[in-house]
Design a protein around this nucleic acid. Sequence first.
DNA 1: TTGACGCCCATAAACCCCCATGTTATCCCA
DNA 2: TGGGATAACATGGGGGTTTATGGGCGTCAA
Lengths: 151, 151
Amino acid sequence: MDRFLSSSVNRIDAKGRVSVPAHFRSVVQKRGYLELYALRCLDQPAMDVGGLDLLDRYEQRIAQEDPFQQAADDMSFFCHGDGSFLKLDQDGRITVTDFIREHTGIGQEVAFVGRGQFFQIWEPDRLAGHGAKVRERLLMLRQASGGGPSR
Amino acid sequence: MDRFLSSSVNRIDAKGRVSVPAHFRSVVQKRGYLELYALRCLDQPAMDVGGLDLLDRYEQRIAQEDPFQQAADDMSFFCHGDGSFLKLDQDGRITVTDFIREHTGIGQEVAFVGRGQFFQIWEPDRLAGHGAKVRERLLMLRQASGGGPSR
DNA sequence: TTGACGCCCATAAACCCCCATGTTATCCCA
DNA sequence: TGGGATAACATGGGGGTTTATGGGCGTCAA
Protein backbone atom coordinates (compact mmCIF):
# COMPACT_ATOMS: atom_id res chain seq x y z
CA MET A 1 0.00 0.00 0.00
CA ASP A 2 1.44 3.33 -0.99
CA ARG A 3 -1.40 5.69 -0.22
CA PHE A 4 -2.30 7.41 3.01
CA LEU A 5 -5.57 5.84 4.18
CA SER A 6 -7.65 5.72 7.35
CA SER A 7 -7.42 7.96 10.37
CA SER A 8 -6.40 7.83 14.01
CA VAL A 9 -5.77 10.04 16.99
CA ASN A 10 -2.51 10.19 18.98
CA ARG A 11 -1.51 12.08 22.07
CA ILE A 12 1.11 14.81 22.27
CA ASP A 13 3.71 14.26 25.00
CA ALA A 14 5.27 16.74 27.39
CA LYS A 15 7.93 17.65 24.83
CA GLY A 16 5.40 18.48 22.15
CA ARG A 17 5.99 15.29 20.16
CA VAL A 18 3.39 12.99 18.66
CA SER A 19 3.78 9.63 16.94
CA VAL A 20 2.88 9.51 13.27
CA PRO A 21 0.73 6.37 12.82
CA ALA A 22 2.91 3.41 11.87
CA HIS A 23 0.98 2.83 8.70
CA PHE A 24 1.62 6.38 7.51
CA ARG A 25 5.30 6.02 8.33
CA SER A 26 5.56 2.95 6.14
CA VAL A 27 3.97 4.91 3.28
CA VAL A 28 6.42 7.74 3.87
CA GLN A 29 9.28 5.31 3.64
CA LYS A 30 7.89 3.53 0.60
CA ARG A 31 7.58 6.84 -1.18
CA GLY A 32 11.12 7.72 -0.24
CA TYR A 33 10.30 10.98 1.51
CA LEU A 34 13.35 12.18 3.35
CA GLU A 35 11.44 14.95 5.04
CA LEU A 36 7.83 15.90 5.49
CA TYR A 37 6.40 19.29 4.66
CA ALA A 38 3.21 20.67 6.19
CA LEU A 39 1.14 23.22 4.30
CA ARG A 40 -1.46 25.37 5.94
CA CYS A 41 -4.88 24.57 4.44
CA LEU A 42 -6.52 27.58 2.87
CA ASP A 43 -10.05 27.03 4.07
CA GLN A 44 -9.81 24.56 6.93
CA PRO A 45 -8.08 24.53 10.33
CA ALA A 46 -5.84 21.69 9.19
CA MET A 47 -2.38 21.10 7.75
CA ASP A 48 -1.73 19.12 4.57
CA VAL A 49 1.34 16.95 5.11
CA GLY A 50 3.34 15.16 2.46
CA GLY A 51 6.68 14.96 0.73
CA LEU A 52 8.20 17.74 -1.26
CA ASP A 53 6.31 16.50 -4.31
CA LEU A 54 3.40 18.21 -2.65
CA LEU A 55 5.16 21.44 -3.58
CA ASP A 56 5.96 20.32 -7.11
CA ARG A 57 2.30 20.48 -8.01
CA TYR A 58 2.01 24.02 -6.75
CA GLU A 59 5.23 25.09 -8.39
CA GLN A 60 4.08 23.76 -11.74
CA ARG A 61 0.93 25.77 -11.28
CA ILE A 62 2.92 28.88 -10.44
CA ALA A 63 5.07 28.42 -13.52
CA GLN A 64 1.95 28.94 -15.64
CA GLU A 65 1.49 32.42 -14.21
CA ASP A 66 3.22 35.62 -15.16
CA PRO A 67 5.94 35.65 -12.48
CA PHE A 68 5.56 39.36 -11.92
CA GLN A 69 1.84 39.40 -11.34
CA GLN A 70 0.23 39.25 -7.96
CA ALA A 71 -1.24 35.78 -8.49
CA ALA A 72 2.19 34.18 -8.86
CA ASP A 73 3.45 36.05 -5.85
CA ASP A 74 0.47 34.99 -3.75
CA MET A 75 0.83 31.36 -4.75
CA SER A 76 4.52 31.35 -3.95
CA PHE A 77 3.85 32.97 -0.62
CA PHE A 78 1.30 30.32 0.18
CA CYS A 79 3.26 27.25 -0.78
CA HIS A 80 6.78 28.36 0.17
CA GLY A 81 6.11 30.59 3.10
CA ASP A 82 2.99 29.29 4.77
CA GLY A 83 4.27 25.86 5.72
CA SER A 84 6.85 24.18 7.87
CA PHE A 85 9.10 21.17 7.84
CA LEU A 86 8.18 18.22 10.00
CA LYS A 87 11.16 16.07 10.81
CA LEU A 88 10.44 12.51 11.75
CA ASP A 89 12.68 11.51 14.63
CA GLN A 90 13.91 7.99 14.64
CA ASP A 91 10.98 6.80 16.73
CA GLY A 92 8.63 8.10 14.06
CA ARG A 93 7.46 11.19 15.89
CA ILE A 94 7.05 14.79 14.79
CA THR A 95 7.09 17.94 16.87
CA VAL A 96 3.96 20.07 16.81
CA THR A 97 5.08 23.68 16.51
CA ASP A 98 3.25 26.79 17.62
CA PHE A 99 2.73 27.63 13.97
CA ILE A 100 0.70 24.44 13.57
CA ARG A 101 -1.14 24.78 16.87
CA GLU A 102 -2.23 28.28 16.01
CA HIS A 103 -3.78 27.39 12.71
CA THR A 104 -5.31 24.06 13.73
CA GLY A 105 -6.23 24.64 17.36
CA ILE A 106 -4.39 21.47 18.29
CA GLY A 107 -3.82 21.13 22.05
CA GLN A 108 -3.18 17.71 23.57
CA GLU A 109 -4.17 15.37 20.76
CA VAL A 110 -3.69 15.14 17.02
CA ALA A 111 -5.99 13.47 14.51
CA PHE A 112 -4.21 12.02 11.46
CA VAL A 113 -6.37 11.67 8.35
CA GLY A 114 -5.23 9.85 5.22
CA ARG A 115 -5.96 11.68 1.98
CA GLY A 116 -4.29 9.44 -0.59
CA GLN A 117 -1.28 11.38 -1.86
CA PHE A 118 -0.88 13.18 1.45
CA PHE A 119 -2.41 13.23 4.89
CA GLN A 120 -3.84 15.89 7.16
CA ILE A 121 -3.54 16.72 10.82
CA TRP A 122 -6.50 18.15 12.74
CA GLU A 123 -7.63 18.98 16.20
CA PRO A 124 -9.89 15.93 16.86
CA ASP A 125 -13.08 17.82 17.77
CA ARG A 126 -12.81 20.13 14.80
CA LEU A 127 -12.25 17.14 12.56
CA ALA A 128 -15.43 15.53 13.89
CA GLY A 129 -17.37 18.70 13.14
CA HIS A 130 -15.88 18.95 9.70
CA GLY A 131 -16.63 15.28 9.00
CA ALA A 132 -20.27 15.79 9.92
CA LYS A 133 -20.57 18.71 7.50
CA VAL A 134 -18.89 16.77 4.71
CA ARG A 135 -21.27 13.84 5.13
CA GLU A 136 -24.21 16.22 5.12
CA ARG A 137 -23.07 17.84 1.89
CA LEU A 138 -22.55 14.48 0.25
CA LEU A 139 -25.98 13.32 1.32
CA MET A 140 -27.62 16.42 -0.11
CA LEU A 141 -25.67 15.97 -3.31
CA ARG A 142 -26.97 12.44 -3.68
CA GLN A 143 -30.55 13.43 -2.97
CA ALA A 144 -30.34 16.35 -5.35
CA SER A 145 -29.17 14.09 -8.13
CA GLY A 146 -32.32 12.04 -7.84
CA GLY A 147 -31.41 9.18 -5.59
CA GLY A 148 -28.79 7.27 -7.50
CA PRO A 149 -28.06 3.66 -6.59
CA SER A 150 -29.92 2.47 -3.53
CA ARG A 151 -28.52 1.49 -0.10
CA MET B 1 17.00 20.74 0.44
CA ASP B 2 18.00 23.64 -1.73
CA ARG B 3 14.96 25.87 -1.56
CA PHE B 4 14.02 28.47 1.00
CA LEU B 5 10.93 27.08 2.72
CA SER B 6 8.91 27.78 5.86
CA SER B 7 9.01 30.81 8.08
CA SER B 8 10.11 31.85 11.53
CA VAL B 9 10.57 34.88 13.73
CA ASN B 10 13.83 35.86 15.45
CA ARG B 11 14.70 38.68 17.81
CA ILE B 12 17.06 41.54 17.14
CA ASP B 13 19.69 42.07 19.82
CA ALA B 14 21.04 45.31 21.29
CA LYS B 15 23.60 45.59 18.49
CA GLY B 16 20.99 45.34 15.79
CA ARG B 17 21.87 41.77 14.83
CA VAL B 18 19.47 38.93 14.15
CA SER B 19 20.14 35.24 13.47
CA VAL B 20 19.23 33.97 10.03
CA PRO B 21 17.38 30.67 10.60
CA ALA B 22 19.80 27.75 10.47
CA HIS B 23 17.85 26.11 7.70
CA PHE B 24 18.15 29.18 5.49
CA ARG B 25 21.86 29.38 6.20
CA SER B 26 22.33 25.83 5.00
CA VAL B 27 20.50 26.69 1.77
CA VAL B 28 22.70 29.75 1.33
CA GLN B 29 25.77 27.59 1.71
CA LYS B 30 24.45 24.85 -0.56
CA ARG B 31 23.79 27.42 -3.25
CA GLY B 32 27.24 28.82 -2.81
CA TYR B 33 26.18 32.37 -2.12
CA LEU B 34 29.18 34.27 -0.89
CA GLU B 35 27.11 37.27 0.03
CA LEU B 36 23.47 38.05 0.42
CA TYR B 37 21.76 40.91 -1.33
CA ALA B 38 18.58 42.54 -0.08
CA LEU B 39 16.22 44.39 -2.39
CA ARG B 40 13.23 46.49 -1.48
CA CYS B 41 10.06 44.81 -2.60
CA LEU B 42 8.27 46.93 -5.13
CA ASP B 43 4.83 46.60 -3.63
CA GLN B 44 5.26 45.30 -0.11
CA PRO B 45 6.95 46.50 3.10
CA ALA B 46 9.44 43.65 2.86
CA MET B 47 12.93 42.95 1.58
CA ASP B 48 13.71 40.20 -0.90
CA VAL B 49 16.96 38.53 0.12
CA GLY B 50 19.04 36.15 -1.92
CA GLY B 51 22.22 35.73 -3.90
CA LEU B 52 23.23 37.95 -6.76
CA ASP B 53 21.02 35.89 -9.04
CA LEU B 54 18.21 37.78 -7.37
CA LEU B 55 19.21 40.74 -9.51
CA ASP B 56 18.75 38.64 -12.63
CA ARG B 57 15.16 38.22 -11.67
CA TYR B 58 14.63 41.96 -11.31
CA GLU B 59 16.43 42.66 -14.52
CA GLN B 60 14.10 40.28 -16.30
CA ARG B 61 11.26 42.24 -14.87
CA ILE B 62 12.72 45.48 -16.13
CA ALA B 63 13.38 43.96 -19.54
CA GLN B 64 9.64 43.52 -19.90
CA GLU B 65 9.18 47.27 -19.80
CA ASP B 66 9.65 49.64 -22.70
CA PRO B 67 13.12 51.12 -22.16
CA PHE B 68 11.89 54.51 -23.36
CA GLN B 69 9.30 54.69 -20.65
CA GLN B 70 9.90 56.07 -17.24
CA ALA B 71 8.81 52.83 -15.56
CA ALA B 72 11.90 50.94 -16.70
CA ASP B 73 14.16 53.71 -15.50
CA ASP B 74 12.40 53.88 -12.17
CA MET B 75 12.63 50.17 -11.66
CA SER B 76 16.29 50.09 -12.53
CA PHE B 77 16.96 52.89 -10.09
CA PHE B 78 14.94 51.11 -7.46
CA CYS B 79 16.59 47.76 -7.67
CA HIS B 80 20.14 48.73 -8.47
CA GLY B 81 20.26 51.67 -6.17
CA ASP B 82 17.93 50.70 -3.41
CA GLY B 83 19.39 47.44 -2.28
CA SER B 84 22.03 46.60 0.25
CA PHE B 85 24.45 43.81 0.99
CA LEU B 86 23.83 41.70 4.04
CA LYS B 87 26.94 40.11 5.46
CA LEU B 88 26.52 36.96 7.48
CA ASP B 89 28.80 37.09 10.50
CA GLN B 90 30.36 33.87 11.65
CA ASP B 91 27.50 33.10 13.99
CA GLY B 92 25.09 33.33 11.08
CA ARG B 93 23.66 36.74 11.92
CA ILE B 94 22.94 39.79 9.81
CA THR B 95 22.72 43.40 10.87
CA VAL B 96 19.41 45.14 10.30
CA THR B 97 20.19 48.60 8.97
CA ASP B 98 18.08 51.73 9.26
CA PHE B 99 17.48 51.46 5.54
CA ILE B 100 15.77 48.11 6.07
CA ARG B 101 13.89 49.24 9.13
CA GLU B 102 12.51 52.21 7.30
CA HIS B 103 11.07 50.25 4.43
CA THR B 104 9.79 47.29 6.46
CA GLY B 105 8.83 48.84 9.77
CA ILE B 106 10.95 46.26 11.56
CA GLY B 107 11.55 47.07 15.22
CA GLN B 108 12.52 44.34 17.67
CA GLU B 109 11.72 41.20 15.71
CA VAL B 110 12.21 39.92 12.19
CA ALA B 111 10.05 37.39 10.36
CA PHE B 112 11.94 35.28 7.81
CA VAL B 113 9.76 33.86 5.04
CA GLY B 114 10.98 31.29 2.52
CA ARG B 115 10.03 31.99 -1.08
CA GLY B 116 11.77 29.16 -2.90
CA GLN B 117 14.59 30.85 -4.81
CA PHE B 118 14.98 33.59 -2.21
CA PHE B 119 13.54 34.62 1.12
CA GLN B 120 11.91 37.71 2.56
CA ILE B 121 12.18 39.60 5.80
CA TRP B 122 9.13 41.28 7.30
CA GLU B 123 7.93 43.01 10.39
CA PRO B 124 5.95 40.13 11.99
CA ASP B 125 2.61 41.92 12.39
CA ARG B 126 2.66 43.24 8.87
CA LEU B 127 3.47 39.77 7.64
CA ALA B 128 0.44 38.36 9.43
CA GLY B 129 -1.78 40.96 7.80
CA HIS B 130 -0.29 40.31 4.41
CA GLY B 131 -0.71 36.55 4.84
CA ALA B 132 -4.39 36.95 5.63
CA LYS B 133 -4.92 38.99 2.48
CA VAL B 134 -3.04 36.49 0.35
CA ARG B 135 -5.13 33.59 1.61
CA GLU B 136 -8.28 35.56 0.96
CA ARG B 137 -7.25 36.28 -2.62
CA LEU B 138 -6.31 32.66 -3.23
CA LEU B 139 -9.65 31.48 -1.90
CA MET B 140 -11.46 33.83 -4.23
CA LEU B 141 -9.31 32.62 -7.08
CA ARG B 142 -10.23 29.05 -6.31
CA GLN B 143 -13.94 29.80 -6.09
CA ALA B 144 -13.83 31.82 -9.28
CA SER B 145 -12.23 28.95 -11.17
CA GLY B 146 -14.73 26.48 -9.80
CA GLY B 147 -12.59 24.14 -7.79
CA GLY B 148 -9.01 25.19 -8.22
CA PRO B 149 -5.71 23.40 -7.74
CA SER B 150 -6.24 21.57 -4.48
CA ARG B 151 -8.96 19.14 -3.51
C1' DT C 1 37.69 59.35 20.30
C1' DT C 2 33.65 57.48 19.15
C1' DG C 3 30.84 54.50 16.82
C1' DA C 4 30.18 50.77 13.56
C1' DC C 5 31.64 46.34 12.78
C1' DG C 6 34.10 41.92 13.03
C1' DC C 7 35.67 38.14 15.99
C1' DC C 8 35.31 35.51 20.10
C1' DC C 9 32.95 33.16 23.94
C1' DA C 10 28.99 32.12 27.35
C1' DT C 11 24.43 30.46 28.18
C1' DA C 12 19.72 29.03 27.81
C1' DA C 13 16.44 26.88 25.09
C1' DA C 14 15.13 23.91 21.43
C1' DC C 15 15.97 19.87 19.14
C1' DC C 16 17.35 15.11 18.22
C1' DC C 17 19.30 10.51 19.47
C1' DC C 18 18.80 6.64 22.42
C1' DC C 19 16.54 3.57 25.61
C1' DA C 20 12.66 2.11 28.81
C1' DT C 21 7.84 1.10 29.72
C1' DG C 22 3.15 0.02 29.11
C1' DT C 23 -0.55 -1.26 26.07
C1' DT C 24 -2.66 -3.44 22.32
C1' DA C 25 -2.93 -6.74 18.75
C1' DT C 26 -1.40 -11.11 16.92
C1' DC C 27 -0.02 -15.63 17.05
C1' DC C 28 0.75 -20.16 18.78
C1' DC C 29 -0.16 -24.06 21.33
C1' DA C 30 -2.42 -26.78 24.73
C1' DT D 1 -11.40 -22.29 22.34
C1' DG D 2 -8.94 -20.09 25.79
C1' DG D 3 -4.86 -18.32 27.52
C1' DG D 4 -0.29 -17.13 27.59
C1' DA D 5 3.79 -15.74 24.74
C1' DT D 6 5.33 -12.46 21.39
C1' DA D 7 5.64 -8.68 18.45
C1' DA D 8 4.35 -4.03 17.12
C1' DC D 9 3.38 0.30 18.55
C1' DA D 10 2.50 4.53 21.26
C1' DT D 11 4.37 7.03 24.92
C1' DG D 12 7.65 8.77 28.52
C1' DG D 13 12.05 10.55 29.74
C1' DG D 14 17.56 11.10 30.00
C1' DG D 15 21.09 13.43 28.02
C1' DG D 16 24.05 15.25 24.33
C1' DT D 17 24.11 18.56 20.45
C1' DT D 18 22.65 22.41 17.80
C1' DT D 19 20.70 26.96 17.63
C1' DA D 20 19.41 31.50 19.07
C1' DT D 21 20.80 35.16 21.77
C1' DG D 22 23.55 38.14 24.76
C1' DG D 23 27.75 40.44 25.62
C1' DG D 24 33.07 41.44 25.77
C1' DC D 25 36.85 43.17 23.23
C1' DG D 26 39.87 44.73 19.43
C1' DT D 27 40.14 47.09 14.90
C1' DC D 28 39.32 50.38 11.55
C1' DA D 29 37.59 54.64 9.83
C1' DA D 30 35.32 59.01 10.23
